[in-house]
Design a protein around this nucleic acid. Sequence first.
DNA 1: CGACTTTTTGAGTCTAGTCAAAACATGTGG
DNA 2: CCACATGTTTTGACTAGACTCAAAAAGTCG
Lengths: 251, 251
Amino acid sequence: MVRLKSPVRPEWVDPAICSTEYRLKIIGRLPFFQHLPAEAIIKINGLFHDHDFSLDERIYLEGDQADRLYLVAMGKVKLVRSTSSGREVLLDILPGGEYFGTLTVFGGRAHTETAIAQTDCCILQISSGDFERILAKHPDVMRKVLEAVSKRLAESQEIVRQLSAYTAEQRIASALLRLAGKLGEARGQGVLIQLPFSRQDLAAMTGATTETVSRIISRFVEDGLVKSGRKWVTIMDMKRLEELTKKGAVN
Amino acid sequence: MVRLKSPVRPEWVDPAICSTEYRLKIIGRLPFFQHLPAEAIIKINGLFHDHDFSLDERIYLEGDQADRLYLVAMGKVKLVRSTSSGREVLLDILPGGEYFGTLTVFGGRAHTETAIAQTDCCILQISSGDFERILAKHPDVMRKVLEAVSKRLAESQEIVRQLSAYTAEQRIASALLRLAGKLGEARGQGVLIQLPFSRQDLAAMTGATTETVSRIISRFVEDGLVKSGRKWVTIMDMKRLEELTKKGAVN
DNA sequence: CGACTTTTTGAGTCTAGTCAAAACATGTGG
DNA sequence: CCACATGTTTTGACTAGACTCAAAAAGTCG
């Protein structure tokens, strides 16, 4: 059987592609703007500035003053928090179309996490002030923002639960499923996750070490649950992975 | 040395105390109403209904339809999520004056956690509909709600970090400090935490087992960091506890 | 083809979990 | 006020899952 080498196809992040047309599409799809009429979106678009970041560049740091809302136009961004001991905890990976930095636009003065470009990417930014003016003009947008933040809170609490009660194996299985749902691409019968993301990243998401992640992924490969290589994983058997996360947790 | 037996003094939860006067005080202190004029608070008060719950009674269950916002008037409430395997994860403990259930008023259809009376308590409730009408009338309230939810999101992410990178000892130290800040009462040179809360609860907060919690608390007692007994803990040396949480995490 | 990074594997150790039983507290009824 | 029933906390012995350190193997890129 021919083993597929690397199914990863690097995304093209051509700054030129951040055209007005594309920006309108991305902005218009944001959960809190999608109900607005086209003219409003066009106006709002004018308030966003774009900025390219290259792989591994930091978009902002934990502790930086939070005075902007960010939007991933192209590429992927990861949100991390680091511990005093240097260990990184990966809170979330955001594909194109997702916003970040919000949380702190309201209330918070400083960012509580660091945002890093997971790939070369193009980021749209809007200042707190401009965003607040939008909120003032469109009261319904605020409700949507609230919904969006609430949803993230629920997700975060779900992760708390998993970290508390799951074994490393279950946490990894669950992280893969979550990523597949959010960032996966169909590939034959499997779902490919190519962020790209390394064992490191997966370890930082699940509170495990790279070695442990590697061992467990190897086990998954043996059992035919996934295929994997450098910086990618393809899920071959979602069903069994899901069962893993459900079966008798620590007790 | 005389060991202090039980410093716990049960709170009196006298339903009669949920007087209009007291209700106004509690409601007026909510982060999202506190800026409103007294007349508005009085009007809002009329929309809340009170209900007493006794120890261990469930206020709502994970999965229940979320159609109300709750407010702890008297007593304490804990929010838990349980895993398929029956293990409980304690997400938060709320003292008088805190709200809950919100998250799902906006966007969510179902509660994502279960709320349980940690003591006998008196809960104020307002229907989604009435609350939304308040939001519509006072746009600034919505912004405050958003801030409040954002703050909880940041807290939740902090817990994710701790669960990922801290040892059980550090998580327990950190949980004690958090509880002390929120629910502690000064007692001589120490800070007493009497929710009441058991080793069970502390275990469920920190993702550890009761036995582990017990062993670690015993070590803390030996080292003079805390005093403890059935359902209470007094922190004697905050500084050293804080150092514990900072010192070399898993790496 | 190297040089470099990422992933895998192995051996040894330690933290925290499991199971079981004893010690303690607290509240009740005699 | 004591003895008992019940629920909570502590302790002990054992085990297992996950971490550490170290080194080999496999991919990737210029």
